[in-house]
Design a protein around this nucleic acid. Sequence first.
DNA 1: CTGTTAGCGCATTCAT
DNA 2: ATGAATGCGCTAACAG
Lengths: 369, 369
Amino acid sequence: MTVTLADVAARARVSPATVSRVLNGNYPVAASTRERVLRAVDDLDYVLNGPASSLAAATSDLVGILVNDIADPFFGIMAGAAQTQIGGPGDGSGRAGGEKLAVICNTGGSPERELTYLTLLQRQRAAAVVLTGGAVENPAHQAAMAAKLAKLADAGTRIVFCGRPPLPESDALVAALAFDNRGGGRRLTEHLISLGHRRIGYVAGPRERTTTRHRLEGHREALRAAGLDVLPAGGGPAAGSGEQAADDPLVVHGPYDRRSGYESTLELLRRAPDVTAIVAANDTVALGACAAVRDQGMRIPQDISVAGFDDLPFSVDAVPALTTVRLPLVEAGARAGRLAMGKENPPPGGIATIAAELMIRGSTAAPRG
Amino acid sequence: MTVTLADVAARARVSPATVSRVLNGNYPVAASTRERVLRAVDDLDYVLNGPASSLAAATSDLVGILVNDIADPFFGIMAGAAQTQIGGPGDGSGRAGGEKLAVICNTGGSPERELTYLTLLQRQRAAAVVLTGGAVENPAHQAAMAAKLAKLADAGTRIVFCGRPPLPESDALVAALAFDNRGGGRRLTEHLISLGHRRIGYVAGPRERTTTRHRLEGHREALRAAGLDVLPAGGGPAAGSGEQAADDPLVVHGPYDRRSGYESTLELLRRAPDVTAIVAANDTVALGACAAVRDQGMRIPQDISVAGFDDLPFSVDAVPALTTVRLPLVEAGARAGRLAMGKENPPPGGIATIAAELMIRGSTAAPRG
DNA sequence: CTGTTAGCGCATTCAT
DNA sequence: ATGAATGCGCTAACAG
């Protein structure tokens, strides 16, 4: 029923081995022979059996891209960019040559699903795995991840972090592209302070997320530098981890979605009606914050300034346009894709920090009077 | 080096076949034996070899979800919803039981890449394929797609269309969920007409796309019913295809992105400064249209009404909130996922039309004077 | 309910 | 440059 490599060999009057060599192109074959084989392939409409091929070769052409929430353009943009570097443009014949199958896996931000996907990819003997987005900072989960990733790396799977710091205990076998969330957060709040804001609310992302923590730390750095920090400088020294912002009345945590932005902002305005600016964990949250501010009868930026993070495409279309921090998602995603393909060398030290650029637009202004 | 099923069998003191049966759970095994096997699996940290398994069973646990542009939340939302029905929640152990690997493939709207991905999935012996988004209406490509899909279906791959009409010549082996783009488009324009608009611009999507054509056809149906159509009723009868709107000065085509919305709107305003309303191909395009209208010094909706399509999450946050047509993306995606898993029976006739609901918000109002 | 036996389709030694 | 032979790790009949 289904045509196999042997059928192609028979039709081309060569051995199966030769057909295999032609298809994989990693071995010298006479031009005339190759031609004959290729024609037989087309005539028979032969499609390689991936599982058989992977079994024999002990590697597959699958590349997994893990994202927290594919419905969020933040991840969609990065994943799409990565995929362009991996999928290969195809040759228009639909025949599918040596390209890899880049696939996106949606973890929904759940640690369990993240591990499950990793196992699934391990099971498929994936050629590479790209991990995007903030990591969950739970010791047990981090340990499990490190163990799982070590096993994957062991089996020859290339590991790339994109927009995410590498795991603390992770081996150097991986490349990492980390966004400068801390620096971006700091510059954003510095901007607000320089405008004259003194009471700044912060609608943060979910706790136990590196992204959340880093952006918040940047924010607090700026506050502290201006002598505006509400809380003591926090626990540990150098490390900077374990910082406890839980009691800051000007900080409210919630998921990275619009609804959370809306509700957290209402909560914030209730707690501290005197805030003159609100920084949101990201642009989506900022949109919700804007809606909440308006529903309270206040104008942006005259009554309250609002700022976001990421600079997603819709941010410039908000009214007023959103002041935010631009992350080069397309570039980062593409680079991660290239790293996963081994088309590009890992950065020195295995980890590169990607700059975040402050985008000042209409949603922030000096406070009234 | 790598632990195999035989190792597990040895440790559990059973035959490899028994281990296989425990793992696949599709065969009776004594509880005590199962327990023993499972423990051995955990002890040895065994992970099934997917390729070997797929080869022997002649099917894999891969499910492909094809999307035009994963950076567009329209697709991200649908794909994410589909994936939740397919990926399985995991059991928290990260062990990965019988769940399928739902993967998203980004075609970028390119017919070639679409075919390439299909071939790649065919090569992997995918269990199912979900095709989302509008199809390209090019005869050659449609024929190639039909042939490829027939081959996939032949090989036992389940085919599901989501938010996309089935191919004309396609076999009944597939299930299809089609959005009522035509009806939605018609109701949207009827709404504008009922507000008193007579000169309505249309920023359409790319040509040769079913989605583009259907929405536009709905628009023109409404115009025609009100005696407002600019062009003759078009070529063919019944079929409704081959309708040529190319010469309508009030229609401008472009990609489904913000930039196109912006530029097409400027073009439209240049061609017909007397339009009092603009209908955009989708919400993203509408955002660009809004920006263009504003940049021309006009207010929405006082000077010009603007409407979108899809009701993406950000649409309600636009200022003013966008009048649009709501498509139940999450429900449709989830249903497609269930169909792909065989968890739900196909609709009668294999094809279900999904209703589109008009959402009237602040961006549309009666024209001045 | 469990063990035994045979391939699944291909990549890869080794020969030639 | 090509052919022949071997095994990748697992599942699916068959026994029993």
